[in-house]
Design a binder for these strands. Sequence first.
DNA 1: AATATTTTTTAGATTAACCTAAAAATTTAA
DNA 2: TTAAATTTTTAGGTTAATCTAAAAAATATT
Lengths: 221, 221
Amino acid sequence: MAISFTEENYLKVIHRLSEATSEDISTNAVAELMQTKAASVTDMLRKLAEKGWVNYQKYQGVRLSPAGEKIALSIVRKHRLWEVFLVDKMGFNWDEVHEIAEQLEHIESDDLVNKLDEYLGFPKTDPHGDPIPNKEGVLPELAYSHLSEIKANKTCKLMGVAQDSAVFLQLLTKLHLSLGAKLDIKEINEFDRSIFVSINDAEPIFISHEVAKNILVKILA
Amino acid sequence: MAISFTEENYLKVIHRLSEATSEDISTNAVAELMQTKAASVTDMLRKLAEKGWVNYQKYQGVRLSPAGEKIALSIVRKHRLWEVFLVDKMGFNWDEVHEIAEQLEHIESDDLVNKLDEYLGFPKTDPHGDPIPNKEGVLPELAYSHLSEIKANKTCKLMGVAQDSAVFLQLLTKLHLSLGAKLDIKEINEFDRSIFVSINDAEPIFISHEVAKNILVKILA
DNA sequence: AATATTTTTTAGATTAACCTAAAAATTTAA
DNA sequence: TTAAATTTTTAGGTTAATCTAAAAAATATT
């Protein structure tokens, strides 16, 4: 069935919200991420339900149907593969690729997506550490922790970020925090939960709790 | 000023029609290429004129303004660069790339286009031999002849095609006619202007006038 | 439990891009 | 040079996606 860019974006947003909770997604939550009004969302949810991509009962919130989930995952797959392309092949920085990938994710050609996947060497994650669904829509489950939850004196590896905003990513870059970096938690300050951390064995630096919350790591030791 | 995909497609079509003639372009000609009705075209031409991208007086036909020409050339540039990418990097055949490039040509990022250009080695032509405008919108002028106009006993090189349809390109592939092939015109048949031509010194084959009309060549000797 | 607040939906408009049918202008032909 | 044919435009509608304002339902508070 034909699908518009707008419909794809709604499914993507509902998918994103669903990852964070097992509850039904509220109209307002969708409206906020779609940068539109609740009334517009109501209209669209009815339409998506008619097409069989979401389960929606008025006043009850919405969730993706299996068909809708499949579409959402294919968009996520395309978005993340294009991000890898933009960084690895085009030489963009990780904070520059989101908007372009938002456009590229709507290009329709299964053949192209799979060729791109192969060309990039079947990457498992995008430049922000987010997992890339495979051809069948299966998301590799990467159980990472938030840096803010790690105990002092632990060593871990920076595997991803919980936020793609350019300002956040640019801050990480300024702090020399990039994917794969080795992080030694030297000290956690009780006052505001800020931490001192050594990046790749360099002099420890100071990181706010807010930043640490958005950094995903794998514990090494 | 903001521009929609549809507006971009209209400008592209007007540009294409303008290349073939110095006359103003008729509403019907645009309608046919846009696969829409003349009434819709009239509406759009008025809008494009308001935005300053075309010069249009009712009943007088349309032509691109310098601003419109600039936009059209940037779309052509993107379309052709993406075609090179699809063939050279993704491994598509030349008859498979048009539809995908029709989508990719609307991706908006000057930065990406210029990085892509560099990544591809600043190609001068696309996989069909069509010239690629440079960053400034300047089209390298490639003065090619139609194979149908070449005299017997001449040698030439296949530089491009005058048509991108998949059926035509697939036929060329079956006949072993690909970009760069050396063509020796052995004989032109008076009956229907079909020709016998040897491709890369192989046994001469028979080619219809209709095919020859759509093949662009550079005369070697 | 009744009321107040918040959330969501409905009702009615708007805009872009399209359509059909009819009218007007232009071009072609007798 | 008038009439016929064609092309183009106008007039009036449709659909998708949005909006505002008001009504209805759900949730929270006293």
